[in-house]
């Protein structure tokens, strides 16, 4: 049923080649035109849910320097989905089961608080990642006939999202975000200052494991929209952009969610009027935001440095 869904999505993909939806450049009427299609409404709902979840988890992931673990969880979602299609079960189940399992494996890997074991951790993560990709390749070749589906799994598609899938995403997002809210402050403590947190009785290791599982859930959600390879567009880019702009935790968290929502909506909107994959657009908008934020910060730093240099020289030049 799901593979049929994917095949159908690919078919509709071809049908939505340039010309089938043409922007009038009148924003209101364009949006109205977009919302006439139920699949587009589903996609926007799913994109909204996914953007908020990814932004929230991604903010902590970037702060915790666990992007490599997040990347692996995203990669792992590919064999998860491919395996689910092969077994004929729901793709959502495949995504969630495999990313959560991988999160538990990564959490079980030894990790010292001081960071000495980080290199061995990344070796374990890399090993898991390579094996997972290989499994995905195997599942695809075992199944044989869904090459278009493979592209969707890797690079994303928003055409095949059903209202049932939206509900699954919503339920998973509510649970994930509620748990994150429960552990948010001790997790922040354990991230910024693990030694003192541990001395204060914060269960640092447990929090790390719970966080990885939540991150697994988030990547499983995002993968369903952006594809396994472009998960980072929503997981890393908004958080990295926001953290470049401000060092205030509450502000950068809010900014992360806002940027994630903006890139998801913009990406979906533009993809609707275009023949190219949605993952590309979401990633491009995310990347543009990151570049702009970096330029803003570096520019500000340059201006300040120049101002500082000018003041003393002016004093020296004065007679």
């Amino acid at each position: 049923m799901v593979s049929a869904d994917l095949a159908g999505a690919a078919g509709r993909w071809l049908a939505s080649a340039p010309g089938s939806a043409v922007p009038t450049w009148n924003l209101v009427s364009d949006i109205r035109q977009m919302l006439m299609f139920p699949f587009m409404v589903h996609a926007l709902r799913a994109g909204t849910i996914v953007a908020v979840t990814a932004g929230a988890l991604g903010w902590f992931m970037v702060l915790r320097r666990q992007s490599f673990a997040g990347h692996t969880l995203a990669i792992v979602s590919f064999p998860g989905a491919a395996g689910a299609i092969l077994l004929g079960v729901s793709v959502s189940i495949g995504y969630f089961a495999v990313t959560i399992a991988a999160a538990l494996v990564i959490a079980a890997a030894p990790r010292s608080i001081g960071g000495r074991a980080r290199s061995s951790e990344s070796a374990i993560i890399g090993t898991v990642q390579a094996f997972a990709l290989a499994c995905g390749a195997l599942f695809v070749s075992l199944f044989g006939g869904f090459l278009n589906g493979v592209t969707d799994l890797l690079f994303g598609s928003f055409l095949g999202i059903s209202s049932g899938q939206v509900l699954v995403l919503l339920a998973a997002a509510v649970v994930t975000l509620a748990l994150l809210a429960l552990i948010a402050r001790p997790l922040f403590f354990a991230t910024v200052d693990p030694d003192v947190a541990a001395a204060r009785g914060v269960p640092v290791r447990l929090l790390s494991a719970v966080f990885l599982v939540l991150l697994g859930c988030a990547t499983a959600e995002v993968s369903q929209i952006t594809g396994a390879l472009l998960v980072f567009a929503l997981l890393v880019m908004p958080a990295a952009t926001a953290q470049r702009l401000t060092a205030r935790p509450a502000l950068s968290f809010t900014l992360t969610i806002a940027i994630a929502l903006a890139t998801a909506w913009l990406g979906l909107g533009v993809a609707f009027f275009s023949a190219y994959p949605v993952g590309f657009y979401i990633t491009t908008f995310g990347f543009a935001g990151f570049v702009l934020a970096s330029a803003w910060r570096e520019g500000g730093r340059l201006v300040r440095r120049r101002a500082r240099r000018r003041t003393p020289s002016a004093v020296v030049a004065a007679p």
């Binding site: 809210a181 429960l182 552990i183 001790p186 922040f188 910024v192 947190a197």
Partner: peptide, 16 residues
């Protein structure tokens, strides 16, 4: 200041 503030309430569950 955020690191200092964690010293006062960092281990409390939930979100500020």
């Amino acid at each position: 200041i955020d690191v200092v503030r964690l010293g006062s309430d960092g281990e409390r569950w939930g979100v500020p």
